[in-house]
C-alpha cells in the first residue's frame, strides 16, 4: 500500500513536471509506466503475439501523450492511466472485430470463375459411355496410350516399357488422342 502510494506519488510528480514541459521527467515517466502498461495488456490479451502487444503498448503511450492535459495533478495517477489502457484495449478489440467482419474467407479454388471457358484444364466428362465409345474409335497407338496413362494411371516410364515405345512417342500419342477425343465429344454435345 505504502509502496504503491509512493510509486503513484512519483508518477504524479513526473507528470506535473511533464505538463510544465520538462522533457526528462516525461521520458522518465514514460519509461517507468511502459512495463506496467505492457503487463496490463499482456494479462488482459494473453492470446496476442509479442508484436501485437507492443503495438498496443505504443498505442497507449501515444494516447497518454495526446491527452496529458486531462490529468489533474491533485488526483492519483494510476486510475487515470488504467482508464486510458482499458479504453484503448476495448477500442482495439472493436477494431479487430470490425476488420474480421469485413473479411471474407474463401477456399483455395482451382479455378477463378465458374464459367466453362475458365475451366479448360478440367478433364472429367459427364457421360462415361460416350467417352468409352469415343476411345474405342481412336487408332490403336493412341487408344493404348490413353488406356494406360489416363485410365490405368500408369507412369510414362511404365507405359513406354509396356508398349515398347519411347516416352516422347507416347507423349505425342497421348496429346493427339486427347485432342481427337475433345473434338469428338464436343461434336457429340452439339
Amino acid at each position: 500500500m505504502t509502496d504503491s502510494t509512493s510509486v503513484d506519488g512519483r508518477f504524479v510528480a513526473f507528470m506535473r513536471a511533464a505538463q510544465a514541459g520538462d522533457a526528462d521527467a516525461y521520458a522518465q515517466l514514460m519509461r517507468e509506466i511502459t512495463p506496467r502498461i505492457r503487463f496490463v495488456v499482456r494479462s488482459r490479451r494473453k492470446f496476442l503475439s509479442a508484436d501485437d502487444i507492443e503495438d498496443l503498448v505504443q498505442d497507449v503511450l501515444l494516447s497518454v501523450h495526446a491527452v496529458r492535459a486531462t490529468y489533474d495533478p491533485s488526483r492519483p495517477f494510476m486510475p487515470w492511466l488504467l482508464a486510458i489502457i482499458r479504453n484503448r484495449l476495448a477500442d482495439a478489440a472493436r477494431r479487430y472485430a470490425r476488420r474480421t467482419r469485413q473479411e471474407v474467407f474463401v477456399d483455395n479454388l482451382d479455378v477463378t470463375f465458374a464459367g466453362e471457358s475458365a475451366n479448360s484444364i478440367k478433364e472429367t466428362y459427364a457421360d462415361p459411355e460416350a467417352l468409352r465409345l469415343a476411345i474405342q474409335t481412336l487408332p490403336d497407338g493412341q487408344r493404348s496410350a490413353i488406356e494406360m496413362l489416363k485410365l490405368r494411371e500408369m507412369s510414362l516410364k511404365e507405359a513406354a516399357a509396356a508398349c515398347g515405345t519411347s516416352i516422347g512417342a507416347l507423349k505425342i500419342a497421348t496429346h493427339r488422342a486427347m485432342t481427337a477425343l475433345r473434338k469428338k465429344l464436343m461434336r457429340n454435345n452439339d
Binding site: A18, Q19, A20, G21, D22, A23, D24, Y26, A27, M30, R31, T34, Q58, L61, L62, H65, R68, A69, T70, Y71, D72, P73
Partner: peptide, 16 residues
Amino acid sequence: GLIRRLAQNVEPVRPL
C-alpha cells in the same frame, strides 16, 4: 525510440 521522440516534442500543457 517512441518514448524519446515523444519526450523531445513535449510542450507545456495547462491541465484541464
